[in-house]
Each structure stands twice: as C-alpha cells, then as structure tokens.
Write a protein that binds this DNA or RNA. Sequence first.
DNA 1: TAAATTCATAAAAACGTTTTTATAAAAAAG
DNA 2: CTTTTTTATAAAAACGTTTTTATGAATTTA
Lengths: 334, 334
Amino acid sequence: MAKITIRDVAKEAGVSISTVSNALNDVDVLNPATKLHVLEVAQRLNYVPNLNGKMLKSGKTMMLGFFTTSVSGPYFYKLIETMSRQCERHGYGLNVFVTKDKQVIMSNILGRRVDGVIIYEELKIDEQDIEVMQKDKIKAVFLDREFSNETMGSVTFDSFTAGYEAAKYLIGLGHKRIAYISGVDTMFDSVRRREGYLAALREYDLPIDDDYIIQGYFEEDSTFNAIKAFIRANASKLPSAFLAGNDLSAMGCIQALKVHGYEVPGDVSVVGFDDVDIAQYFSPPLTTVRNPIARQAILTVDHLVRMIQGKEQGHSQTLTGELILRGSSHVPIN
Amino acid sequence: MAKITIRDVAKEAGVSISTVSNALNDVDVLNPATKLHVLEVAQRLNYVPNLNGKMLKSGKTMMLGFFTTSVSGPYFYKLIETMSRQCERHGYGLNVFVTKDKQVIMSNILGRRVDGVIIYEELKIDEQDIEVMQKDKIKAVFLDREFSNETMGSVTFDSFTAGYEAAKYLIGLGHKRIAYISGVDTMFDSVRRREGYLAALREYDLPIDDDYIIQGYFEEDSTFNAIKAFIRANASKLPSAFLAGNDLSAMGCIQALKVHGYEVPGDVSVVGFDDVDIAQYFSPPLTTVRNPIARQAILTVDHLVRMIQGKEQGHSQTLTGELILRGSSHVPIN
DNA sequence: TAAATTCATAAAAACGTTTTTATAAAAAAG
DNA sequence: CTTTTTTATAAAAACGTTTTTATGAATTTA
C-alpha cells in the first residue's frame, strides 16, 4: 500500500480534496460536522501531509538553514543548540549544513530549500555571491562578518575590543612579554582579536615581536603541538603570558606548558576567549573573555524570522564580551 | 523580478521546458548544439532549479535527517561533523533536528522531509511509532538502541562491556570502593555502563552500595555540583575511585574533588567514557574507554544510504570500546 | 414569490519540476 | 519513390498540496 495522500482521504470521506484541505488547515468555511468527519477519516487512515507538496504550493519550507564550515568545539554546539531551540519556538526547523563546498551552499540557498539562512562560513561567500542572493531577496544573517542591507543582517561579536581588553588586563597585571595564539587568518574572530591585542601593545609602548604570534588553529591538539614547538624554539625568551584566541587553544596551551614543567598561573599566565561551558572546570579554571553565544543565537534567529515575516529590515548587531577572572592568570614572577 | 524558473529559460532559449530539463539533467537525447544553447541561456539568466519542485516530482529530497534531543558535548559534535561529511560524500545533506517534541519528529519523518532518518532520541520513539514508520517503509538507523527489521537498522556502542571492563580495570588496580556517576535513566548508554559496572562488582564479590551510584546528568556542571554534595554527605566513607558515565562527568568530578582538596589520581582515581577530543588535554589527562564515535557516524550514514538505495536490508551493528590509560587513575593509597 | 445574498462544497488552477507520450522532420530501408 | 525507422523536440501528465473560482442549495430581502 502506497503512501496515503489527501486524495485517499477525500475519497474515503466522500468529499472533495479542497474540503479535506480546508478541514485539516482549520479554514473556517466548513460545516462543523463535515470537518469533524473528515478529520476522523484522516486520523483513521493515519494521514500525514506530504511536506514537499505543501512546500511547493506555499513557497515556504518552515526551515532555516545554518551554513558552516565546522561544528567542532563548544562554541558551535552552544550556538546550534540555542538556535535550534529558538527556531522551534517560532515554528521553524533548523537545517545544519556543514560543508566547504560553495556550490552546495548556493544551490541550497537559491534553490529555496530553506526560508532563510544563517551563515558562518569564514568569508568564502564573497561580495558577488551576496549580490546574487540579494537579487533573489534571500533573507540572511551573517555571524562571521558585519553586513546589512534590506534583507540581510548580521549578529557579530566585538572581537577587537575583546582582544584589546584582555591584553590590557594582562598588561595591567605587569606582563610585558605577551604572546598571542592565533587561528587561521580566514577566521574573522581570530584576526580581530589579534588586532585588539596589537592595539593594546602599541598603546602601552610594548615591543611587538612577530615570533610571539603563534599559529594554533583554534583547537586543543593543534595548539598543544604548536606551543610545544614554540617552547622548544623560544626557551630563552619565553613570554610571561599567553593570550589564546579561544578557550580551546588556551587549554591546549596550558597542557603543553605543564608538560614542559611550567606552572599556570605560577610561571606563566594564560587567558582565553569565549568562556565555553568547560572553561570553569578546567585546571586551572580559565580566565577568559565571555562571548555571549546563546544571546547571539537568539538574536540571530529572531532577526531572521522577523525579516522573513517582513516585519523588519536587515541590520547589524554587535555583542560585547565580558572579562571573567579565574585561576589561569596572575601577576608575572619577575 | 520574480524568481527565474525553467519556464523562463525555455522561453528565452526558444525551446520547450522538457528540452530545458533534459539539457540540465544531461539526458542524452538532445542535439548537442541545442543543449549547449540551453545551458548557456540558463547560465546567463542565473537559473537555479527550485528544489521543492524537484523533490515533489522525484520523491527524493537528498537529505538525511538526524533527530536528537541534544547536541551538547563533544560526543555530539564529533558525531554530527562526521555524519555530515559522510553525507556529503554520498551526495546527501544532513538535516539536524534538535527537539523533544515527538509530533515534530514524526511529521517530519512521515511527511517525507528527508529520505532517511537517524535517531538518537533516548527511547521516546516507542514500539508503536516504529510500527507506523515500518508501514511507510521509512529507512532509519537507531543510535540509541539495538533494533532491526527490513528497512531499519542500528549502530550502537557496547556500553555494557565498556562499563564492565572499566570497573574490572579499577578492581585490578586494587580499588574496593568504586562509585558510579550516572546520567539520567532514559539514557541507554548510562544505564548499560552502570549494569556493566555492577556486573564487575558482583563478579569480584565487592559490596554494592546504593549511595555509590550518583546522579550527574552527563555534564560538567551538574556533575560538579552532584559530586560536591556527595563529598559533603560521604566524607567518612569516600570511594577510592569514581567511574564516571562519560568524560564530561569525569571532568566535573575531578574539578569537584580538587576543590575539596583531593588529588587525582593521588588520593582518588577517576575513569571516564568516550575519549572525547579534550580528554587527553585535561589535567590530569583522562583514563577513559574510547568510544569510536567517528566510526559510528560513518557506519550509520553508509548503512542508511545503502538501505535507501535498496542495496541492503536493515541490520544492527555493535561497536566496542578500548580502554585508554592516562593520568587520572592509579592504585589506591590505602 | 422573485431576486439577491449567503453558505457549503466541488472543481479547477497553480506551484516548478521530471517523465511519459505525441509529433514532425530527417534518414534509412525496401 | 513510398514506407519504415530514427532523431529531435514539443506537448501533456504527474507529483501532493493550497487557493481561487464555480456551482448549486438554502436563506434572506424586497
């Protein structure tokens, strides 16, 4: 027996398909008795509407798309979990696409698989792609860049100020040799945090040493290895503090320091970014700049939904961090 | 200007819509010159096929659905990232639904929003729901229970043996008082690991103390609090080892022990489950039973795709853990 | 009580594709 | 040369809905 359609229900109930549709969608034109009867038959046949038919006709999928190159790490799952919950609250589902293939991304967006899109994609979607999307009046929110026009907005984190404040805090403690652990340069946040860090060094006339900018890929393991190599190469002029581009790299860094016999924060201070869930349970608990991830997720979904509903034009919102003092930072020893 | 459809392309190219469709789908019946011309026009108009039309006609969405109640924690992002990558390899997209609303789940599955489903849902989908799905020949793979029939399979982790082996390892070290940190009882893995732990205790004639089974919700923070409470209540008869139901609870447990002045593994041993990415960078690095998450993800997607293609019937696969010895476990002090 | 209005339902059109069937022209066969 | 076959394209049907329009009966209005 093939899938039950609205036609089967209509036949079984002895009415037309439009009557069935009206009954199911609670359109208030039917005789209550008819409606009841149709509903009863639909129930009995276990009828479930085919969403593809619905979508084609209505032009709405009731799905939002999240396009990202990665879901690794606590930042992303907090984001996804919160966005997902917020979508459900608005009656939408969330479609997560983890891909680096721009073709896949564009055909899903322009092919209307989703009613609106959320993009964290590290700038591979370029001006020209955005123009194409704009021509189709695609509703979009960017998380990895500041941007806005009529149908697109953004919700970003002020990483520059975060980097600046974190560096200033370490300088205030008395640190003079501060290294920065970077992610790859396509990562908006990594670059902006580094710029903030550099701005603080300049402001306080501290020397800027290119060796003190370390490539770490924003993960524990790659950072762990990078810091081990760094320590071996710079044993004579080790910094007294590390500013790690995110909490994961801070944790990898601390572990590498421990392996080499350094105490944190006794010998070296380490500060991270994000304040992911696990940061406060690490040893030592991380000093970090809190990134309001859940808030970003909620603002993003709300903005997108309002644009879809035509209640709002695109605009950009910026969230600011908050320095959380914990156990991984201290005044320098010398 | 509204969205460009196949009709617009046909008109502009001066051919019928069937010709356009054939050209785009590379059906080998057309005059090569015609095909080239159509393709050129489609390109010029920036035509992108509407996926809803495609889906309705073909009955295929080229999407797999992952239905879960949570994405929190490293287990899930490893799973999602790997599944997503594997989907892409097969030409599918992955649709992640984070919801506890069974209605949402069933209407998306039965409404054919996806061609196949992956379910990690902690048993709220019951026998009756499965029967409904079976009647519609829904292709499904369960991750949270062992099950199989013609169109459904499962890929699970042998948590019982993992729990048994971990407990046996601690007993072998000489531990006699071993506590288990549980998740909620709807979690298949938590329950099975506990059963394995209990089986090992029984086998070695160790006393089973109900107080030694601690509720922790499988997260750092809830476990941190639970263990602090436990330590206060049981200061006089503290276990010499904790078997934590997953790595996150192991980390929360260790942190709570440290806060109360206990050394790990000097005073107390702690063993976790999963070997999530961060486990080896924790302080101390975690002894844990490795759960081959990436492998589970790949087997799951492959099995589902083969069922969709009609190349395979449903069956259940079971993965086994591997004990990874690191720094959080040690012989007992007394 | 004839005309106008409302009510309840049915029929038809539409969404954007793919696929099946039809058609006309060109090529091959007899 | 006619008839058959092949080739290239067009036309039409179909997927499962929702929505617009049509229809006929019941009710109201004048």
